[in-house]
Amino acid sequence: MEELQVKSQEGKYLTFYLGNEDYGIPILKVKEIIGMMNITYVPRTPEFIKGVINLRGKIIPIMDLRLKFGMKEKEYNERTCIVVAEVIINGSQRHLGIVVDTVSEVINIIGKDIEPPPQFGAKIDENFLTGMGKVKDRVVMLLDIEQIINSEEFVALFNNMREEETATV
């Protein structure tokens, strides 16, 4: 069963850095990578939601992965990138910008190089990880971006929305 799951993780990943750590997300979840741009703050949102940007006429929310992972906030510089991810939220496809320190490369990780995430000791919630990819001498933490987005905060966000609806209409 686990074997199978790991096997399914095989494929291309976009890797990026948060601090000194390598992270990877499946390339098919990535829509595009853009440089940092002005983010409009949106009130009444969790801290890790930095706000929204205008991506060629589309308004997309921006999440700071550092904050989401409980890491120290870092000032944005010219290396800071936004990875626009394509995710399925509540059954509908949405775009979400993820702020990372900088993007690294697209790598192909084969199944045997992927190990299941450690049960303990990981710096971030193991639920967000699908596995640990070994590439040359590095270890890339493979992230489940949908899991991140569907974590409580987001769920709460949407639940809140429903409550609002019933309350106001």
Binding site: I27, G35, C81, E105, V106
Partner: peptide, 20 residues
């Protein structure tokens, strides 16, 4: 250097497109 960085991002985007 900046251009190289941008090109890098561009190439990554291209890689994303290619993967798609």
């Amino acid at each position: 250097d900046e251009i190289a960085f941008q090109t890098n991002i561009l190439s990554l985007n291209a890689a994303v497109e290619a993967a798609r």
